[in-house]
C-alpha cells in the first residue's frame, strides 16, 4: 500500500530507464566481448574495414602465436625454457599471491592494534595513515624507484610486492572490521591467561574473517592490475608481468590485433574469473573501506 507513491514514478520512466540500462550494459561488456572473439579471428577478418560481429572462421593462430614469442626460463634462471607468456603468468600469480598474503597478515595485525590496543601515539599514527591514503599513490612511485634501486631490488618481482603491502588502505579497512570485536571477549581471553599472539590467532582472527576475505581479494586484483608500478620497476623479459608483457608485445607488433587480443584475454580472463567467484567479498571491501573515509 505504501508502495503506491513509488508506482507513481511513472511506469514509462521505469521501462525507459531499464532499456537505457540494458544498452549501457551492452556497451560496457562489449570491449571484453571484442577481446574474446577477436582472439579467435584470422588476420584477414581482423584487418578488414568491415568488422565481423561474430567470427565466421575460427582460428587458434593468435594463441599459438602468443605462445611462440619471447621465450624465457620457467623459473629463476632455470635452463628449462617456456614461452614468455607462461613465465609472465607465473610471475603475475606469484606477485599477486605474495602481495595478498603479506598484506592480509600485516594489515589485520595492525588494524587490530589500532582498533583495540590503547598504546601511546595511537591517534597520531592513525591520522598519519589516513593522510597518506588521501595522497596520490603514483606520486611516490618515482622516488620509490630510486629507493628500490638502492636496495638492489630493481627489476625484481619483490619490488612491486613490498610497496603494495605498504599501502595503508588495508590497515584502514581492517581497523574498521576490528572495531566490531567486543572488548569483553578480549578481556576473557586475557583472564584465561592466553598470550597476546594466541588471543590474536584464536579470538581476533575468526571475528575479522570477512574483512580478511575482502582485503585478500581486493589486494589480489589491484596488485594484478597495477600496471604503472610494474612498468617502472620491471624491465627484463623474464621478470615481466602479464600486463607488461602484453604492453611490450603491443609496442612491437602494433598492428597484429589478433595476437594482442589473445594476450589481453590471457591477462584479463583469469582475474575476471577470480573477481566473479569472490565478488561478494569484494563489494563488501569497497563499501567498508568508504564508511568513514
Amino acid at each position: 500500500m505504501k508502495k503506491s507513491k513509488d508506482n507513481g514514478q511513472s511506469v514509462a520512466y521505469r521501462i525507459i530507464s531499464f532499456i537505457v540500462l540494458l544498452v549501457l550494459a551492452l556497451i560496457f561488456i562489449f570491449p571484453l566481448y571484442w577481446i574474446v572473439t577477436g582472439m579467435f579471428k584470422p588476420p584477414a577478418a581482423i584487418n578488414s574495414p568491415t568488422p565481423q560481429w561474430w567470427p565466421q572462421e575460427w582460428t587458434l593462430r593468435n594463441i599459438t602465436e602468443l605462445f611462440s614469442r619471447r621465450t624465457a626460463p620457467l623459473f629463476g634462471n632455470l635452463s628449462i625454457t617456456v614461452p614468455g607468456a607462461v613465465r609472465w603468468m607465473i610471475n603475475t600469480v606469484f606477485m599477486a599471491v605474495m602481495a595478498m598474503i603479506l598484506t592480509c597478515v600485516t594489515a589485520s595485525m595492525a588494524g587490530y592494534a589500532l582498533a583495540k590496543k590503547r598504546f601511546f601515539g595511537r591517534t597520531l599514527l592513525f591520522s598519519l595513515i589516513v593522510a597518506a591514503m588521501a595522497l596520490p599513490k603514483q606520486v611516490i612511485l618515482v622516488p620509490l624507484v630510486r629507493e628500490i634501486s638502492a636496495l638492489g631490488l630493481y627489476d625484481n618481482i619483490w619490488a612491486v610486492i613490498f610497496p603494495t603491502v605498504g599501502w595503508p588502505f588495508g590497515v584502514f579497512l581492517m581497523k574498521q572490521f576490528a572495531e566490531g570485536i567486543p572488548g569483553e571477549m578480549l578481556e576473557a581471553a586475557r583472564i584465561d591467561g592466553a598470550s597476546e599472539l594466541r588471543t590474536f590467532t584464536s579470538v581476533v582472527t575468526p571475528m575479522i574473517k570477512p574483512g580478511i576475505g575482502a582485503l585478500a581479494i581486493f589486494t589480489f586484483i589491484n596488485s594484478w592490475n597495477d600496471y604503472f608500478m610494474q612498468l617502472i620497476m620491471l624491465t627484463s623479459n623474464s621478470n615481466l608481468t602479464i600486463s607488461l608483457g602484453i604492453a611490450t608485445m603491443q609496442a612491437e607488433n602494433s598492428t597484429d590485433f589478433g595476437l594482442i587480443m589473445a594476450g589481453a584475454a590471457l591477462a584479463a580472463v583469469p582475474i575476471i574469473i577470480v573477481f566473479l567467484l569472490f565478488q561478494k567479498y569484494f563489494t563488501k571491501g569497497i563499501t567498508m573501506g568508504a564508511v568513514k573515509g
Binding site: 570491449p31 571484453l32 594484478w224 600486463s243 602484453i246 594476450g263 589481453a264 584479463a268 582475474i271
Partner: peptide
C-alpha cells in the same frame, strides 16, 4: 572494465 585491467582495456 576496472577488473579487466588497464592494459587489456586499452589495447582493445
Amino acid at each position: 572494465p576496472v577488473v579487466t585491467g588497464s592494459v587489456a582495456v586499452t589495447v582493445v
